[in-house]
Design a protein around this nucleic acid. Structure first.
Lengths: 199, 199
DNA sequence: CCATAAGCGGGGTGACGCTCCGTATATACG
DNA sequence: CGTATATACGGAGCGTCACCCCGCTTATGG
């Protein structure tokens, strides 16, 4: 690869990181090219489709979350590992608003450029879940894809401005359900039991 | 209103119902006008913005769900009423793919045409929740907006082709969590052969 | 230093949401 | 029934989008 091509490639990725963080997965491709100081043709030479660009952008993050799962598996109790991984994964997905749908679509489409990274990430989560299930700490009637679905749904919630502040608490409720913690015990509520706001 | 105007209005709504069901909330406005056999200008005369069209399309459905909540409140036990209403509402939201985000955005924006219907629907759900809470059948640390958030998240799941088949089961898990049913009892799994109303 | 292949970048295409305004027509009134 | 006019119609036009294509530029190996 020629030096100028490499430079443009890197500038495009950096620009995409910035613009996508600001405008979400549907960001204007032109904006990205402009931000990178590169022609549209050049951008499409490096990334023929929007998905190709997202793929390059997300692969590192996905691989990092898979590695993170390995770390947590080695260093924490199975339930704590799962909780921590879920929260961090949701936060990471939220960093690129709207990518979750692409991610989930890619899981069932082997031709997608994102397919490999998605499957790896799901496997990482599934392994954490299996550990917790083996330890009797998580319900047995869900699998790695269900876990993925919950992550997607919660990341979607975090993407809605009106609901973002509640996401953490709602994630806590789902985590409770997955980990079969006793819902009737008011002592272990994840957040302050505040009175309902609306009616 | 002139007779031809009324006819075009009705044809536009019918076309929108069909196209939005097929292509989701981001459907092409041109497609809708074409399907209705009406010029773009005519469409924009009747519905100046996409949101105005969605609003007309959804208002009846929202009002129906609010009314449904009243029925259920009168005819069922609080927990069953809540479960049934949640499932039906998720199914209804799924009928118009992608509208959930608009719906949630409208709740916090009083200037939105959808605002009134959204608030009414949230209130209806909140009332069912309050009944269940008063009967000691639902956890107290959530409110009507949380319920709305869960509906939105589950409707989003139903919109993802790869996850749609799991939506019902995952909804069951969340309902269990809301209703504080005993998660350790393997005998009462939520998805028994006796299926509820939706299809 | 130059030949050449790799890379660059913008003009072109067709579709989008949305606006504007000249034309057609439904309806009220004589 | 005929006509006047308010009302509604509908598409040309604007700016933007994703994406394709190809002539021009430039980095690089000999």
């Amino acid at each position: 690869m020629r030096a100028d091509a490499r430079k443009n490639y890197d500038q495009l990725l950096a620009a995409a990181r910035e613009i996508v963080a600001r405008d979400g997965a549907g960001a204007s491709m032109r904006d990205i090219a402009r931000q990178a100081g590169v022609g549209f043709g050049t951008m499409y030479r490096h990334f023929p489709t929007r998905e190709a660009l997202l793929e390059a952008l997300l692969r590192t993050g996905f691989d990092a979350m898979a590695a993170r799962a390995d770390d947590l598996e080695a260093s924490s109790a199975p339930d704590e590992a799962l909780v921590t991984w879920l929260r961090e994964t949701i936060a990471a997905a939220h960093a690129y608003r709207g990518v979750t749908a692409s991610m989930i679509a890619a899981i069932e489409d082997p031709r997608s450029a994102l397919h490999g990274s998605c499957v790896a990430m799901r496997s990482a989560g599934a392994r954490l879940l299996a550990q917790a299930q083996a330890a009797g700490l998580a319900r047995n009637d869900i699998d790695g894809t269900d876990l993925f679905a919950f992550v997607g749904a919660l990341a979607w919630l975090a993407d809605q401005p009106a609901l973002a502040p509640r996401t953490d608490r709602l994630a806590g409720i789902i985590v409770e359900a997955i980990l079969m913690r006793d819902l009737r015990n008011p002592g272990v509520m994840p957040s302050e039991p505040s009175s309902p706001v609306d009616g």
